[in-house]
Amino acid sequence: MKTFLIPAAVLALCAATASAWAASGTVLRAEKLYSQPAATSKVTASVAKGASVEILAKQGGWLRVKSGSSTGWIRLLSVRAGTGGLGGTGVGDVVGAATTKSDPSRVVAVAGLRGLNEEDLKQAKFNEAELARMEALTVTPAQARSFAAQSGLAVARVPDLPKPQAAQPASTWGTN
């Protein structure tokens, strides 16, 4: 166990200081690799769900990855960074460790930092002065619009994303 702790801390430091994209990853769904970061470009290879890839670069919604002898661009959302595996329901070491109740004796304090816990929030007492401070920092919609315009942010028409199929109850709604 102890030998694991040092690499973990080193890894965290690397991720914080250097580019996060010199990392390994796992393919989350059966996917294609493209020659360019665009679905209209040539397909260079296929990768299976669960395959390991090396992440080489990132551009918008795409990652450039190496899988075996093939290199190409894959959708950002089809890969997870890190070595924790698929991260499906209860599959993989990382997910298991992350979702089971934490055992205080096994908590690793990375670089001596301590996170917030449930007890901190439970014990919290209303801080009127700090809330007044937060409310005083509020900006107006006009200020927000002018801020957006300064860097050319313009409202875009983007339709809602669909709910997952499994969560949709069978009803007459869908047909009309």
Binding site: A20, V79, G82, A97, A98, V107, R114
Partner: peptide
């Protein structure tokens, strides 16, 4: 993606993953 690459037992993500 960045968070997925963090070590699982980092105490800074304890509450997040809970």
């Amino acid at each position: 993606q960045d968070l997925a690459g963090l070590p699982a037992k980092d105490s800074r993500t304890g509450l997040l993953y809970k």
